[in-house]
């Protein structure tokens, strides 16, 4: 039982990290950013390249090198996110919302198959792998790598919450999420703030990508697709647009899947988690935190 919960938590941490960016972007411009999962994939590949370049220049201890690589990757994928918004989303921000969805799907295809053209269809081996055995926790086994994932995800989420709650930019984001027009009248630079949201969301996804590479040791060009869908699901469970909701939703989805495997077996896992989701939304149509909280960032 504890083992099942621990398994769920470690998967859920990943979902939560990716779902955060999804939810942030949704909160501010109401866009389902289908390319978000592919930013996660891009992060893994950027980390792969940076790590390759870095290890050939200087020899750092693995842990320090990994932290450095994660930071560089976050900056690069954040930039990619901003660029994406500029090129594909901003020109049609006032078009029907579904048109944005199509450019998002188009971007997703372009990213996936662009990476495939560069790195080939075969999965690649990530040069560094966090592999420090496993520990026993209340009778459940968990690998150290997964504990690191949970910790890193937790830290990033706390930092982000503080940023949104305490800083000027955070306030600007919340203001735009509530009412973009009024925010503009109050002197908030809406375009800049939206760029910032894309930067932060994509940087988080990039960090998750590097983590995935380092924990599992393999990356491939389609790895973002499924996690994008999972993150979307997690964000909706939590109440889309709500930051804490995304975190809760990620963990909840991880746990649902873990229990699904334990009770019904792997082949019925997705049926189980989606059925729970549908039942839950039938009784609570706006997710865990969707309705109650007024501020949605």
């Amino acid at each position: 039982m504890i083992q099942v919960i621990v398994n769920g938590l470690s998967v859920g941490a990943f979902y939560a990290l990716v779902a955060l960016g999804y939810s942030m972007v949704y909160g501010i411009i109401k866009l389902l950013n289908f390319a978000h999962g592919d930013i996660y994939m891009l992060g893994a590949y950027v980390g792969f390249v940076v790590l390759g370049a870095l290890t050939s220049w200087l020899s750092l201890p693995t842990a320090l090198g990994l932290v450095l690589v994660t930071l560089v990757t976050m900056a690069l994928t954040g930039g990619a996110g901003v660029l994406m918004e500029r090129v594909a989303y901003r020109p049609i921000r006032h078009a029907p919302r579904l048109s944005l969805l199509i450019t998002a799907v188009g971007l997703s295809f372009a990213l996936e198959y662009g990476v495939r053209q560069i790195f080939g269809p075969k999965p690649s081996h990530f040069p560094v792998q966090i592999d420090a055995g496993s520990v026993n926790l209340f009778g459940a086994t968990i690998t150290t790598a997964r504990i690191i994932v949970i910790l890193v995800a937790g830290v990033l989420m706390v930092v982000l919450s503080l940023f949104v709650a305490k800083t000027r930019q955070g306030r600007a984001m919340r203001a735009i999420a509530l009412d973009a027009k009024a925010a503009r009248l109050m002197g908030i630079d809406v375009d800049r703030t939206i760029s910032l949201v894309f930067f932060i969301g994509s940087a988080l996804a990039g960090a998750a990508g590097v983590l995935a590479g380092a924990v599992y040791g393999t990356i491939d060009f389609l790895m973002g697709f499924i996690i994008g869908i999972k993150a979307f699901t997690a964000a909706v469970i939590g109440g889309i647009g709500n930051l804490y909701g995304a975190m809760l939703g990620g963990v909840a989805l991880g746990l649902l899947e873990s229990f699904g495997v334990a009770w019904l077996g792997g082949q019925w896992r997705d049926v189980f988690s989606f059925l729970c989701l549908i039942l839950f939304l039938t009784f609570r149509p706006t997710g865990i935190l969707g309705g109650r909280v007024v501020e949605r960032m």
Binding site: Q3, V4, N7, S10, V11, F14, T141, R146, A212, Y216, T218, L222, M223, F225, I226, E257, S258, V261, A262, G265, G266, Q267, R269, D270
Partner: peptide, 15 residues
């Protein structure tokens, strides 16, 4: 047990 070939975390099945 059945796994999803598009995923990477098979912790549930491994345990």
């Amino acid at each position: 047990e059945q796994i999803n070939k598009a995923e990477k975390d098979f912790g549930s099945v491994a345990t």
